[in-house]
């Protein structure tokens, strides 16, 4: 079976700072992969390399067997085929820490925008799906509200609906609850858990070890731009091999 996501020897430098130092990672359809690691270890950068919000200075990314075409390695590396990139991006649903909803559009318009403009789907069909998704994440009554009128938790659930509405092959989450108060965190985690249980493919950056345990099929521990340890929840949390991870879990308040 072809992995739905394949990262091969991904490097990323910002000027002289090498943030990713050769990451190789695979995910199969239906996998929930969580990326953990201390601040600055390169988790966000790695996630952003998947949809080319950051262009890897070295290495390759393939989605569902299709490698994203990039120019030869180096600091000025760029996508070779903007059409291919847009198509691949339109199948990756990204959820940001700061929600990044389009503030001048209603929630429903936010959810419908990419399906209509990028995927060129029919308005009636998109509207029906968007409404269903808003119901599903529990904000069906907020369709006509603007983002600023919603709580952080509601905004993030809207952002999740927006990402779901493109029928993504993979959902990418970058610390989706870090900007939220604890009591709002719960409702967003609930939605993500529900998606995990549905068998969606998800790559999730999180600081929440308890949640990582609950949802992950695979846990990846990044340290200084490299994968220090990876495995199932039991392997990584139960039979931790590296000292670094043990330290990290200790600091993260995990026994």
């Amino acid at each position: 079976m072809v992995p739905i996501l394949e990262l091969r020897n991904v490097h990323k430098s910002f000027g002289a700072l090498e943030v990713l130092k050769g990451v190789t990672l695979e995910a199969m359809r239906g996998d929930v992969v969580t990326l953990i690691g201390s601040s600055g270890s390169g988790k966000s950068t790695l996630l952003r390399c998947i949809n080319m919000l950051e262009i890897p200075t070295q290495g390759a990314v393939a989605i569902d067997g299709e490698e994203i075409a990039l120019s030869p390695e180096g600091p000025d590396r760029h996508p070779l085929d903007s059409h291919q990139l847009r198509h691949i991006r339109s199948e990756l649903g990204m959820v940001f820490q700061q929600f990044n909803l389009w503030s001048h559009m209603t929630i429903l318009e936010n959810v419908m925008e990419a399906p209509l403009k990028v995927q060129k789907r029919k308005p009636e069909e998109v509207r029906t799906q968007a409404q269903e998704l808003l119901e599903k994440v529990g904000i069906g009554d907020k369709a006509d509200a603007f983002p600023a009128q919603l709580s952080g938790g509601q905004q993030q659930r809207a952002a999740i609906a927006r990402a779901l509405c493109i029928n993504p092959k993979i959902m990418l989450f970058d610390e989706p609850t870090s900007a939220l108060d604890p009591e709002l965190e719960v409702e967003v985690l609930g939605v993500i858990k529900m998606l995990a249980d549905e068998g969606r493919t998800m790559i999730l950056v999180t600081h929440d070890m308890k949640f990582a345990r609950e949802v992950s099929d695979k846990v990846v521990f990044l340290h200084l731009g490299k994968i220090e340890e990876e495995g199932t929840v039991d392997e990584v949390f139960g039979a931790t091999k590296s000292d670094r991870l043990r330290q990290f879990l200790g600091a993260a308040g995990h026994a």
């Binding site: 339109s90 389009w102 925008e113 990028v118």
Partner: peptide
């Protein structure tokens, strides 16, 4: 962030 979200959606 809004610009980035738009790019991320293709």
């Amino acid at each position: 962030g809004e610009l980035e979200a738009a790019r991320a959606f293709g």
